[in-house]
């Protein structure tokens, strides 16, 4: 696989953000904040970490990426199109009748999706089943990545899986928790306090890595480090800024579940197109 520089990855992340805004504008509904906040993580997964082949999505040696919080799927679609799974024009069909890009991801409709999700809390359990399957099939080289939202872990199902994965020492799994502090009804700590998050996962026998989830370098480092830790399953708590890259969307929970209108989209795209420099300066 081509190795991209940090600068190249940042540019890819910006293109993914632009595509997200475009898609949501065309769709007229959907989630803005989460996908924008996850753009850097999905860039790193698809362009640096995952062992995958966009031309052969069912490749038997591929790594598995599960999106547990299915409502953030625009970021996955945009990353997949950018990686060459399908043509970018198709992004404009998001949420439309007959589209392979369903409002929430359906595995059977689009090659390259590994699960059908939307109802929250299932990804970690699916990862557990897959990791057991990999072990039984003696497919030791393959890894499983599961992206979850922070509001999502209100779900009891997550904690059922969180208990099971260390029990069976399923260290082929790396969980990534998108800690953006918002959910539909407001800030997570008001809706249902999650803290102390690190201690919660540690007490469930997970190894916790905490990073700035909008810092490409930090994401790469954490995902590489996760592969070297075999004693415990690893969860990366990725602190992201919801709506990252679009000033008026950033950190505002009201953008969780709505798309921009055309004026807002214009403004968002204008901001994103100047983002390349902005990210760089933040990292310098």
């Amino acid at each position: 696989m081509t190795k991209y520089s940090i600068e190249q990855l940042e540019l890819i992340a910006t293109r993914i953000r632009e595509d997200i805004i475009d898609m949501l504008l065309h769709a007229g509904s959907g989630h803005s904040a989460g996908p924008l906040g996850l753009a850097d993580i999905f860039t790193v997964l698809y362009f640096d970490i995952l062992n995958h082949d966009p031309k052969n999505p069912d490749w038997e040696e591929r790594d598995i990426l599960l999106l547990s919080n299915g409502h953030c799927v625009p970021v996955r679609y945009a990353a997949m199109a950018e990686a060459g799974y399908f043509k970018k024009e198709e992004l404009k069909t998001l949420r439309q009748f007959g589209s392979r890009l369903q409002g929430h991801p359906e595995r059977l409709r689009l090659p390259g999706l590994e699960n059908t999700s939307g109802p929250l809390g299932c990804g970690l359990s699916q990862a557990a089943g897959m990791a057991l399957g990999l072990r039984l099939n003696k497919m030791n080289g393959r890894r499983i990545y599961v992206v979850m939202g922070d509001g999502e872990i209100d779900e009891g199902n997550i904690w059922e899986a969180a208990m099971l994965i260390p029990k069976y020492k399923l260290n082929s799994i790396t969980a990534i928790l998108d800690r953006n502090n918002i959910q539909i009804d407001g800030p997570t700590e008001e809706v249902m306090p999650l803290e102390e998050l690190r201690r919660k996962w540690e007490s469930f026998n997970w190894h916790v890595i905490e990073i700035d989830g909008n810092n490409i370098e930090a994401i790469i480092d954490a995902l590489n480090m996760a592969q070297t830790i075999v004693e415990k399953p690893v969860i990366i708590i990725a602190h992201t800024i919801p709506g990252k890259g679009v000033d008026f969307m950033e950190k505002d929970f009201r953008w969780h579940g709505i798309p921009p209108n055309s004026e807002q989209a214009k403004l968002a795209l204008k901001e994103l197109r100047t983002l390349g420099g902005k990210i760089k300066s933040e990292h310098q």
Partner: peptide, 24 residues
């Protein structure tokens, strides 16, 4: 080839869907 899930029926069936994804 047997897995004890504990008293966690949501995990039970969802884990099943993951196993089935690997041809089990």
């Amino acid at each position: 080839r047997f897995f004890e899930i504990g008293v966690a029926e949501q995990n039970l069936v969802t884990l099943g869907s993951g196993l089935a994804a690997l041809n089990k």
